[in-house]
Amino acid sequence: MTQIQAQPAQAQAQAAGRRELISFRIGAQEFCVDIMSIREIRGWTAATALPQSPSFVRGVINLRGAVLPIVDLAARLGFESTEASDRNVIIVAQIGDQVVGLLVDAVSDILTVTDDVIQPTPDVASETAKTFVRGLIAMDGRMISLIGLERVLPDHMELEAA
């Protein structure tokens, strides 16, 4: 099952192949990430804009004394930028040793799935899909994309382009 190789450690840890995912909405799309990387979920607060940053970096906010960058996940995944309002939600995720806030429209559910439910991503042309989508889950007639967060923050090329 190729799609699990993205998180080998986790695959080992959960020998039974059961994992918990948190799903959220961006526009009409549904996505999910592994619940183990989520630290907390909080309401939207206005961010301080950062100069020389790509458009999907909305700025930084104060999270109990720490400076937290906010990534507009819609813009990051190639959709239209989010018009942030009080109804939006920030998912605070741990990526490596950094903590990053992800701006999404709403958190919808916690899913418990087995690995065999996760289908490999079909070959598509989109670069973003290849970069972020780790697999697809069909559930109650909906499609939920499982995304990996490792490359959510801008890399050097994207910074220069900004």
Binding site: T48, L50, P51, Q52, S53, V57, V60, G65, A66, V67, L68, P69, Q98, V99, V100, L153, L159
Partner: peptide, 17 residues
Amino acid sequence: IKSLEANYRQVPGVAAA
């Protein structure tokens, strides 16, 4: 003084937050 690098990276023109 708070570090920007801890969770993000250095930003040109910005010393810290």
